[in-house]
Nucleic acid binder design. Structure first.
Lengths: 242, 242
DNA sequence: GCACGCCTTCTTGAATACAAGATCATGCCA
DNA sequence: TGGCATGATCTTGTATTCAAGAAGGCGTGC
């Protein structure tokens, strides 16, 4: 992560870097749900003093990625499937509102860029799960952004970040990737024809399917993440809440 | 504010206190949009060191109440009517989704407490603007909470906090207070009868009316907030963005 | 009189030092 | 041998110190 620009002197540069790195480590299961650590430990690990570390940790705590116990250390927040479900439902509400607005508008939707991505024939489609996941995020955020409400887009972005850790798992099988391409293409087609009700219906079904798929895979992944020898029942239990 | 419990030793007690006090000062126009200040200044003012002050300031900055200029001080974010409009629209989306869910449900809505508040006859109604504003917030947040989605409720709560500074102005005239009582009562009645479409329509109109009213009053208030003698054109301009 | 440049002062970012108390291990006593 | 008290250690909360650089005033040169 050591970049060649050690200090362009951005505001809060270190805290921001640390924030991103910790978040990435959570997404990449380097930091597992239930893992415990201290501020000093993280300071050593990320090569900064406690001050920017604390900034980053508290930011992640307010965003519900971490938990802090008063004078008793930090921990990665356990998986909470109920919470993921609710975040998916919130996504649905926001995206359906965006689509409704897009279909009501007389002006062009400005979804040309998305259409270019998702109307590619099967031969040109990506099969790299990580890449498709990013494209998928761009698609759904693009819908909300195109609706023109910055605050809705901001909230939707936060939701996207929060579910990313499980959403990724939806793109581990080629069948799901293919389905994503097909459904996105179809949804864009319906929007371009201003068939709001059908677009909304398709979109809802599309997100619900992803939600169900992800839930199915997540538990399995959690058990795989640790070396079997190291894993105790307590550790597994700490990864899941509810 | 010095309370009798100097240290129940809550986590981050000072930063939390400072956060609330600054936020209140923004809401009460003690800190005006455009006002500039430094961390040291705030540390003196609120009787804490820079560390908890910075925690609070950065939290408020991420929540869009404040701005920080790199090594050049802090300022209260100017009013941005476009942003308030979008927040109101987001409110509408969230609350309509909540009402739709409530009306679909077979189970009791759990809105009894709200009904008790808003079905009071004219004689028992509050005419205290501040109080009615709180009741109004409770009403709308109550709808979303009753729908059962904690994440939606959390976002709605954030939105509520962000628009409070202008929303208050909607309860300065008795006619608006009366209208609020009537409309809330009617909306609850429609929900209890599971008339989803009509409830949604009423609720949307209700919020739109509030949005329009608030916008009308806000500009006037901004000009009144400062002593005329002290107020320069530049100061007024700094209070409003866009 | 005006414009440019230097220099002091001020402001935030980061690191370090200090304080309060929670946790856990150890040892004593029943 | 088991349970409890006690103390060392560890952890976060807060204050203070150090560092880098932006802003603005003042003086000088034209």
């Amino acid at each position: 992560m050591p970049d060649t620009k050690p200090a362009i002197t951005q505001a809060n540069a270190l805290a921001e870097q640390v924030y991103q790195r910790i978040k990435d480590d959570i997404f990449n299961f380097v930091l597992l749900p239930g893992d415990r650590f201290t501020e000093t430990e993280m300071a050593r690990r990320y090569g900064a003093s406690r001050t920017p570390i604390r900034d980053a940790l508290y930011r992640l705590e307010r965003e519900d990625y971490l938990q802090v116990a008063f004078r008793s250390g930090w921990s990665v927040r356990p998986f909470d499937f109920k919470r993921f479900d609710q975040l998916y439902d919130l996504r649905i509400v926001l995206e359906l509102a965006a689509v409704a607005r897009l279909c009501e508008a007389q002006t062009p939707t400005g979804l040309d860029a998305l259409e270019a991505v998702w109307s590619t024939p099967a031969s040109g489609r990506s099969s790299d799960g990580k890449h498709v996941c990013e494209l998928d995020e761009d698609f759904h955020q693009g819908l909300v952004l195109a609706s023109g409400n910055v605050e809705m887009a901001r909230v939707h972005h936060e939701v996207t970040e929060k579910i990313r850790v499980v959403r990724r798992l939806d793109f581990t099988f080629q069948t799901r990737i293919d389905a994503t391409y097909d459904e996105h293409h179809e949804i864009l087609r319906l929007i371009s024809r201003r068939q709001g009700a059908q677009a909304a219906s398709r979109l809802r079904t599309h997100i619900e399917a992803s939600k169900a798929e992800v839930r199915k895979i997540t538990l399995h992944m959690l058990y795989e993440a640790r070396e079997p020898a190291d894993k105790t029942e307590a550790q597994v239990a700490a990864q899941v809440a509810g």
